[in-house]
């Protein structure tokens, strides 16, 4: 028997909205990793589960190995001239050369530092803006059109203005990375907070929680999984914007190494940089993935 009462009618819709908007968001970014690894396969019987899991992980190694083999074969057979496709050995040599005098480590360190600071700053601002817009009808009415307009500006379009106002220095690069990291967090957090189970919010109110307590004890914990997905997207964006910032104007960092190598015709170093960017990006993403796993277990 459906026992809907009048009292329930004005309550906003509950549930289901957050995952949907998340999904939509990640597909906008062409990025499907958010949360997908957090659910282990359940159906498989216990005995075969471990080995299935092992095979699934090994499956991810197949393609890189094939790519490497293809690369090695092509360069060994000299199908493509060395100045267009360096051999794996020469890339390794470049790594040793740059690594031995410490420059490579400096490039990596400065880039990582920029990413982390920009990511942290952008995420915090995104979290604050997202909370304002997601929690308050007035905050949303007041802010979301403007934030939406800023988000619509391709973030790299800010570069000339940043250079003009902030100058070519550390701050402008970090600022650009922060801009890149801000919007994914903003969008996911605002969307998720809007869809926090209205029943739980009402419960909090009925038990006399203040707005702040409601936020910290009910609403934020409820959106922890979404926040982590947002952070994951933001981190990917941060690396993207790092390279953009360093390509445009810098004297250090992996983006600089890329431009510098291009100018000097060092295609081996270009390969090295790209491989390093891939490894660094994947590593930081994996770290957030671990955090996500832990938080999902703790908060849902």
């Amino acid at each position: 028997m459906p026992n809907r009462t009048i009292a329930e009618a004005p309550a906003p819709e509950t549930g289901a909205g957050a995952p949907a908007s998340l999904h939509q968001y990640s597909s906008t970014y062409g990025y499907s990793a958010a949360g997908s690894e957090a659910t282990p396969p359940v159906e498989a019987p216990v005995g075969s589960r471990r080995s299935t899991r092992g095979w699934l992980i090994s499956a991810g190694v197949v393609l890189p190995v094939l790519l490497f083999a293809a690369w090695w074969t092509i360069s060994a057979l000299a199908l493509v001239p060395e100045h267009r496709l360096p051999s794996p050995a020469s890339v390794l040599e470049a790594a040793v050369e740059l690594g031995s005098n410490g420059t490579l480590l400096t490039h990596i360190a400065i880039s990582t530092q920029r990413v982390l600071i920009g990511f942290a700053a952008g995420s915090l601002i995104g979290l604050a803006l997202g909370a304002l817009v997601g929690l308050s009808k007035w905050g949303s009415a007041f802010l979301s059109p403007t934030v939406g307009a800023f988000r619509a500006v391709p973030s790299l379009a800010w570069v000339p203005l940043l250079v003009l106002y902030v100058g070519i220095n550390e701050d402008s690069k970090v600022a650009l990375i922060a801009i890149g990291a801000l919007f994914p967090v903003y969008t996911t957090v605002a969307g998720a907070l809007r869809h926090v189970d209205a029943h739980l919010v009402e419960l909090g109110r009925a038990y006399g929680l203040s707005r702040w307590e409601l936020l910290t004890q009910v609403q934020l914990p409820a959106v922890v999984p979404s926040i982590v997905s947002g952070l994951r997207l933001a981190l990917a964006q941060a690396w993207l914007f790092l390279v953009a910032a360093e390509l445009i104007a810098s004297s250090m960092g992996l983006g600089f190494l890329l431009v510098d190598s291009q100018n000097n015709g060092r295609v081996d170093r270009m390969f090295l940089t790209i491989i390093l960017l891939g490894i660094l990006g994947k590593t930081t993403d994996a770290l957030i993935g671990l955090l996500e796993k832990y938080l999902l277990k703790r908060w849902s």
């Binding site: 038990y207 006399g208 914990p221």
Partner: peptide
């Protein structure tokens, strides 16, 4: 307004899923 001399129980338990039963009861 919301009157704390009165406690409400709903049809659904409305427990916070990330808290233990004890922590949920502490909310009251």
């Amino acid at each position: 307004g919301i009157d704390l001399r009165c406690s409400v129980g709903f049809q659904e338990p409305r427990l916070l899923p990330w808290r233990t039963l004890e922590q949920n009861a502490l909310l009251g």
